[in-house]
Design a protein around this nucleic acid. Sequence first.
DNA 1: GTGAAAGCGCTAACAC
DNA 2: GTGTTAGCGCTTTCAC
Lengths: 335, 335
Amino acid sequence: MASTLKDVARLADVSVKTVSNVINGYPHVSPDVRHRVETAVAQLRYRPNVSARTLRTGRTGVLALVLPDGDVPYPDELAREVVRAAGSRGYRVVIEQAGPDDERAAPTLADARAMPVDGVLVSAPVAPAELVEALAAAGRPVVLVGGEARHGHCDRVTVDVAGAAEDAVGHLLRAGRRRIAAIGACPTDPGAPPTAGYHRALRRAGLAPVPGHLLPASQHRRADGYRAARALLARPDRPDAIFCHSDPLAIGAMRAAFDAGLRVPADVAVMGVGDIEEGRYSRPTLSTVSVDTGFLAREAVARVAARIERPDAAVAMVTAPHTVLPRESTDPTVR
Amino acid sequence: MASTLKDVARLADVSVKTVSNVINGYPHVSPDVRHRVETAVAQLRYRPNVSARTLRTGRTGVLALVLPDGDVPYPDELAREVVRAAGSRGYRVVIEQAGPDDERAAPTLADARAMPVDGVLVSAPVAPAELVEALAAAGRPVVLVGGEARHGHCDRVTVDVAGAAEDAVGHLLRAGRRRIAAIGACPTDPGAPPTAGYHRALRRAGLAPVPGHLLPASQHRRADGYRAARALLARPDRPDAIFCHSDPLAIGAMRAAFDAGLRVPADVAVMGVGDIEEGRYSRPTLSTVSVDTGFLAREAVARVAARIERPDAAVAMVTAPHTVLPRESTDPTVR
DNA sequence: GTGAAAGCGCTAACAC
DNA sequence: GTGTTAGCGCTTTCAC
């Protein structure tokens, strides 16, 4: 059925080795022979067998991208960029959709050979410490991407989550808001980066944090934002602004405001993080902190690629830039 | 580094064949031996090498799902469901994000061995005839999923696109709309299913189609819907309803209406297809035709699985059910 | 510059 | 019920 190296060799009247050399761009091949081989390859529509090559070399040319189901602020954007960045380096990408509730992902990936990949990019928010440990222990190159990674010894391309939160809250303060709530925080851990940034911004403005104004969200789903915002907006000391740790949460929060009969931003301003496309079409358009996903993706791919080459290189860490994008949900005058 | 069958065999003091038997659940193994093997497997943390197995058996246990970048009405939902359906049958899924502008996808997938997969699910809207032909010619099991597939001899799990369009337009008519435009149509081909359904509904209501009320959309992007709707709403014979062939288009169309100073649904009703989550949070919430993506996914996976088993079975075709979901963008009173 | 042959880890005949 | 062995398609020393 499918033709093999041997078939090509026979047709071109050379040895298997020579064909292999041509396929892999080995330089020292005479023009005549090269031409003969190329003709034979074309004629037989020969394509190398990936499994055989992998078995032999141990390289698959594939990277895995582990994304939580609904737990990343900008999954589509990130996936797109990663696929692109990987492609330009000759890697293909398999996207592993894994919810925190999904038992399958962790063990599967932790297993160094279940899915034959050369390296793994794990979205930091989802990454359970054990998974990362297991991967690292198996000698599999791993890079944590996005979020504020806190796992041990592992390459990371992070976002300055604390800084992003601080900038967002700063923007709300400049817009004249004073009772600023936050959704997606970890109330039990005031040291968590987004919470820290939130507090820092308030402190700077000389404002004391209201205890009940910090609400958790189990995931970055619209429904999570909706639920939290409803609770927030039903309080007697109703906030006049809500900072959400991601755009999907913010979308849910806006809907909650409307359902509560409130206007955004007149009654309550809403702000997210991630700059997903949805926020550019929502009504009102969503103010957000844009994270450079292209940078995130390119750096992450560069990091795994580097680690695949040199497994013992020093652990590296970079931070992606972010920018506040004021839109209608905080600033009625801008579009 | 990683242990092999041979290592396990040595440790368990049996032959490789026996280990292989145990691994693959071959029944005729004595309990004693089985136990010894299992212990050795656990102790060595043995995991089968997928590449070797694939090389030997020709089976990868992987399905590819080819999704266009922005050209499917409900990519997230579909991907999720397909991964789930495949998982329950022991298949993993690699998602191939491929835009129509993306040169890479077609040849790569057409190549029967570039990405070692057992079968391919191709989202119908994106499927260029050549790709499908090439795959089929290479003897690779292919199933077209979603959309109204028109390619030749190939398993399909389709959506009754014409029926969905007819039902949607019917709903708009019942809501009292009379000047109903459509976005995503193919004006050059009045026989195209969505257009046919649109016309059928109008005809039934005794309405003559307005030529300029049928606008194409190159893809299912919010921006495409925005652009088309702006043009539509600037016409002297402004439509009082817009039926969009997908939810993302409808989201864009709603935004265009607001930017033109119009109210939805008071001035213009908007309806989509797909029931994406975004439409349940948009303002107003988006009326839509919900397609049973779970059904789509399960049937599609069942079809490839069947074809992988029996490559020569007769070509099958099923149609997924759909339902009209009235929401605020057409019916101000419902939520 | 090119060829011969070994072997990556696994499964499947085929013996026993 | 278990062991032996060939070989999937490829890359890679090592000769020539």
